[in-house]
């Protein structure tokens, strides 16, 4: 179950004439982890809604697995896509955790036995099986997001979009969700799109798409982005902490490696200085 996505000169203009996307063209290969970054209002969420058919493009083509997204194909293509949104409060519909996870399956008119199996599997995958009968109002924000993730997974998508899904969570919940998604991505061969303004989420992604005022200003590997100081400034983002440290060492005449280092990698490099 792998899916690829292609945008061909896609533009989107809101009914109030506000331009959200300007002639975007890019490809997302199947089974990859992608980060879509940009300031608030840069058009990131519009892309997610276009892919899921919640909005439709003003002009241009969107292809999912080579099939053009349009009114006749949308119902089928939407089945390939799961989205988790930002606010944990606004996605829970069911009265209990398991009923909530089953919501999308009910919409597909599935038999109870099949639903039960998929609900249990999805809850197991996000580590929330023991909460199946709990009222979701009693859960923490991080737990609610896990339930929302399970609701998407129960639909067995091949593309998973996380639209700022961790931005309202505490660091522990955030790293838990990151781990769950990484292991699911490996297990289910998902194509994952992180829509984010959090640099931490860029770790381990294969490709970064950066948007500014509806224009694509960067499309490439994250390590490359860290050296594009102009683009970073334009996007109003700071490079990751380790990159900032590397920069400081450079200013003091040292020569840190060009490739991206995480905290441990950077510590290794510093150790070698002694």
């Amino acid at each position: 179950m792998q899916s690829k996505i292609e945008f061909k000169t896609v533009s989107f203009v809101y009914p109030n004439q506000v331009k959200a996307l300007n002639q975007l063209s890019f490809k997302i290969e199947a089974g990859k982890k992608i980060a879509l970054i940009g300031k608030n209002g840069s058009g990131k969420s519009t892309i997610a809604k276009l892919i899921d058919g919640l909005l439709s493009a003003t002009s241009g083509k969107i292809l999912i697995d080579e099939i053009e997204l349009n009114e006749t194909t949308i119902a089928d293509l939407r089945q390939k896509i799961g989205i988790v949104f930002q606010n944990p409060e606004d996605q829970i519909i069911g009265a209990t955790v398991e009923e909530d996870v089953a919501f999308g399956l009910e919409n597909r008119n599935l038999q109870f036995k099949l639903m039960k199996k998929r609900v249990n599997q999805a809850l197991q995958d996000v580590g929330m099986l023991e909460y199946a009968n709990i009222n979701p109002n009693l859960l923490s924000g991080g737990q609610k997001q896990k339930v929302s993730l399970a609701r998407s997974l129960a639909l067995q998508p091949s593309i998973l979009i996380l639209d700022e899904a961790t931005s309202m969570l505490d660091p522990i919940a955030k790293s838990e969700i990151k781990h769950i998604i990484s292991s699911l991505q490996r297990k289910n061969k998902l194509t994952v799109i992180y829509i984010t303004h959090d640099m931490e989420m860029l770790e381990n992604v294969d490709q970064v798409l950066a948007l500014d005022h509806g224009d694509l200003v960067f499309n490439g590997k994250p390590e490359k982005l860290y050296h594009e100081t102009d683009i970073l400034a334009q996007l109003a983002i700071k490079p990751p902490f380790t990159e900032q440290i590397k920069q400081l060492f450079k200013e003091h005449g040292y020569n840190p490696p060009v490739e991206y280092l995480d905290d441990r990698g950077l510590s290794e490099w510093i150790t070698k200085l002694f």
Binding site: P171, F241, I245, D263, L266, I270, F274
Partner: peptide
């Protein structure tokens, strides 16, 4: 105690200590 929530500078400090620095 919780490693996941430590700030980067502290994590690097602890990594360095493991390496004997």
């Amino acid at each position: 105690a919780n490693e996941a929530s430590l700030p980067d500078s502290v994590k690097i400090y602890k990594e360095l200590a493991k390496n004997g620095i």
